[in-house]
Design a protein around this nucleic acid. Structure first.
Lengths: 142, 142
DNA sequence: TGCCACACGTTATAGCATAACGCAATTGAT
DNA sequence: ATCAATTGCGTTATGCTATAACGTGTGGCA
């Protein structure tokens, strides 16, 4: 459960990428981000991927594996997944609406605990856990 | 929780793809499968992807989202995720060793229940849930 | 000063997935 | 029987996602 970096100083590219993600309604692919940043001088995918790597390392951005896309962390004040206290919230989970693309980010300590128990019982040492629920959000299911 | 198809009749391509996956030690990408099947007349990715789509629909193959790869379902007798009784085991979870690429497939009813409770509390209607733990298996962690 | 670490920019390439077309075989209703 | 609908198949082309490998510039620091 590596504690993320707290309030790191962002570079120009990292700031640009993060701002685009934060202003977005939903998850974005790296190439969509690239297109949004062409006016700011971005020309190549690596410029985006390198920024995303760092932002993910900082805990400010999450990668949605089932979408090959990225979202800004939904938790304010960088308290996400650790943060100032360094104790961590454990694994982040996502509910992804397949109709409106809204993403709900949440923590569930019981799930963490249960998966942790399973791992312990098998001698498995987790480094990163992905939990993604695809489906319909309340509004779209109605 | 859609009940999977039980003992479907597989086409030639589906059988070939499934056999390759089942004999494999670990997960395989679609293109790796394609290469294994060139001698059997496979020429194009779509031949593999179409078979994989069906096998996944049948519950005989799982996609690992964090690897962009596929594994044969580890449960014998097609009792996986439902099967003959049609009651379903709920979500399948995977522990993926980043050192030896071994994949452990498992079910955890408590996790299912916890995520189900969360979804219900938010009015979210899940269609497919992905749980993947990356880390080190017992042997590689030693 | 020389070294190191890091961010950056660029070109090229690798790896993953699907669109769109047409053909053949199967099924099932009329 | 025959027509229509469905499904699987093969092929070509294309699009999307991600990284390798190279070089440049900058700031910190012994």
């Amino acid at each position: 459960m590596n504690a993320p970096i707290v309030n790191p100083a962002l570079t120009k590219n990292q700031t640009l990428v993060f701002d685009v993600l934060e202003k977005s309604e939903g998850p974005m692919s790296a190439y969509t981000i690239l297109d949004k940043l062409r006016d700011h001088g971005f020309r190549a995918p690596l410029q985006v991927y390198r920024a995303l790597d760092k932002l993910t390392e900082f805990g400010m951005v999450h990668r949605l594996e089932s979408l090959n896309a990225f979202v800004a962390c939904a938790h304010r004040e960088h308290e996400c997944c650790g943060g100032a206290h360094g104790h961590g919230h454990g694994t982040v989970a996502f509910a992804i609406c397949e109709s409106c693309n809204q993403v709900l980010e949440f923590h569930d300590h019981k799930v963490d605990h249960n998966l942790g128990d399973w791992a312990k019982s098998k001698g498995f040492k987790p480094s990163k856990t992905t939990i993604e629920i695809r489906g319909l959000c309340e509004k779209c299911a109605a």
